[in-house]
Design a protein around this nucleic acid. Structure first.
Length: 498
RNA sequence: GGCCCCCUCGUCUAGUGGUUAGGACUCAAGAUUUUCGAUCUUGCAGCAGGGGUUCGACUCCCCUGGGGGUCACCA
């Protein structure tokens, strides 16, 4: 049965005409993420999914997944898997089983049948070729485009005649006069003249339903109460609303989130760099950082908080907090945020994160892979400095092999004629040291510095070069402690003493 | 081109008629210091333009400009 009211409460009506067996608790907000499986999960899609997820979780609602795979040409099973994988990586779990749109063709057709019964749809016998020709001419003469309504008011006799003659036809929506408006949660009121909407196609000549039909049928079937999707769907919305209204169905609320832009302010695409969320995983980005960053792209909690866990994000999330203007994807900020998340982790976690990148590097460079014991020490040493796990090999290489080159500028600046003599003295002292620890090492340096009347820095710089080949490393004594006596002495000697 | 959406530092944003226009990233400088992409502090940098409305506009209205989206018998 269908609930009619002049001013229906948003989801107050009981509606089940499309799926009589399905009953949702209508007080529960239901949202859905509905990607087309034509490729990987795009960061834009990921953010849309995240907003849907946050909304559902913050409202105690349901987050459903629908795979819009009706385009047989472009949809592929691997793409479906890639989308699942992307969502799982981000930790966005969905409720129930995903609905595959292609399984509901019959119901989509039924919806059009109902529209026909209600007089909200009509058969169009026009030839597509002729129509497109017509459009071209109309454009030339500067007139407005759109269907001329040739078949809109055919008599039933005429329709019957053409049908018995076996003429092919498509099904069009009989758009009523007037205007269609809706209250978008992020944009406010959006209204469009129905004349602009045109008598759009519902069913192709081959009997397959068109996108807007499938969306309405499935959203109604799934009991979706709040549609949260990309800005690029704004122009579809009036068509969908018109269908809901023609069927007497409750219209869901809409929230159109702005697109994610590249640095040139154009819609983010491949030429801007990585667009698939899984690519970021490969780049050493943590899912929690990605999530946090994506959430802040076009949304804010209303205060200055930036680093927020999923729980906090869920607590703070509202549709009203979504911005109405497009947001540029700023990788530098993502990277910073990633660094913050790494710094919060335990050494075990960090080592687990760096490990694959380090092992790959070792393999490539034919270097012996580090033991976990060393890995954990390195994790502790670099936790505050790493921004991405991918940087790890470059940062720790001197712990895994002898320096291959020595920083040229550094050598010029710090390796003086008297240095080898000082190194020699230092080596002698270090050799005698019974405890190879940071405080003990520091004492040795102090002693040698006194002897040569040097500042500690004057001694540390050349040692750093000899041990690491670099001018920038973590604290020298920590580094030495981890490298161990044998390695330290050998490297200093190799660099040159007398 | 029609229609729709958008416009605060380079970037992400706060701001809802009276603020020294705030925060974050980036960048720069200083400090600490044994160097650093680590830490702390400071700084540079913004209301697209023009008209109104108002005692008073970043905030409200209009116009111009700019950007984006969409115009399929694709999804």
């Amino acid at each position: 049965m269908i609930f009619h009211s002049r001013n229906p409460r948003p989801y107050g009506g009981v509606y089940c005409s499309c799926s009589p067996n399905l009953r949702f608790d209508l007080s529960t907000p239901i949202v859905r993420f509905a990607p087309s499986p034509t490729g990987y999960l795009h960061v834009g899609g990921a953010r849309t999914a995240l907003f849907n997820w946050l909304y559902a979780r913050s409202q105690g609602g349901k987050f459903l997944l629908r795979i819009e795979d009706t385009d047989r040409e472009r949809s592929t099973p691997p793409a479906v898997e890639a989308i699942f994988e992307g969502l799982r990586w981000l930790g966005l779990d969905w409720d129930g089983e995903p609905l595959f749109q292609s399984t509901r063709l019959e119901q989509h057709r039924e919806l059009v049948e109902k529209l026909l019964e209600r007089g909200a749809a009509y058969r169009c016998f026009c030839d597509p070729q002729e129509l497109s020709q017509q459009q071209k001419e109309m454009e030339k003469t500067g007139g407005r485009r759109g269907y001329l309504g040739t078949c809109r008011d055919l008599t039933s006799d005429e329709i019957a005649r053409r049908m018995t003659a076996g003429l092919p036809y498509a099904m069009r929506f009989r758009t009523p006069p007037g205007e269609t408006a809706f209250d978008d949660a992020v944009h406010g009121t959006i209204s469009v003249q129905n004349a602009e909407v045109d008598d759009f196609i519902l069913l192709r000549r081959d009997g397959t339903p068109v996108y807007n039909v499938a969306v309405v049928a499935d959203d109604a079937h799934m009991g979706v109460t709040q549609v949260i999707r990309g800005d690029d769907h704004i122009s579809n919305t009036p068509k969908q609303i018109l269908i809901y209204q023609a069927l007497g169905l409750p219209v869901p609320r809409f929230a159109h989130v702005p697109l994610i832009l590249g640095t040139d302010k154009k819609r983010l695409s491949k030429r801007h760099g990585a667009t698939a969320v899984t690519e970021y995983r490969g780049m050493g980005i943590l899912p929690e950082a990605m999530r946090n960053f994506l959430a802040l792209l076009g949304w804010n909690p209303g205060d200055d908080r930036e680093i927020m866990s999923l729980d906090v994000l869920t607590q703070a999330f509202t549709l009203e907090g979504i911005n109405s203007s497009g947001a540029v994807f700023d990788f530098a900020k993502l990277e910073w945020m990633n660094g913050r998340y790494i710094a919060m982790k335990s050494e075990n976690e960090i080592w687990a994160g760096m490990r694959p990148f380090i092992l790959a590097w070792c393999d490539k460079e034919s270097v012996l892979a580090p033991e976990d014991e060393l890995g954990l020490k390195l994790a502790g040493l670099f936790k505050e400095r790493l921004r991405r796990y991918t940087e790890a090999p470059d940062m720790v290489d001197y712990f895994l092999r002898n320096p291959v080159t020595y920083d040229e500028k550094g050598m010029k600046k710090f390796w003086k004629p008297e240095t080898p003599g000082q190194m020699s003295r230092l080596v002698g002292e270090l050799d005698k040291l019974d405890e190879w620890t940071v405080p003990a090492l520091e004492k040795v340096f102090d002693r040698v510095c006194d002897e040569f009347n040097l500042k500690k820095a004057d001694l540390i710089h050349p040692v750093r070069l000899a041990l690491t080949g670099r001018t920038a490393t973590p604290g020298m004594f920590e580094v030495m402690e981890i490298l161990g006596r044998e390695t330290c002495l050998r490297r200093i000697k190799n660099k040159g003493i007398h």
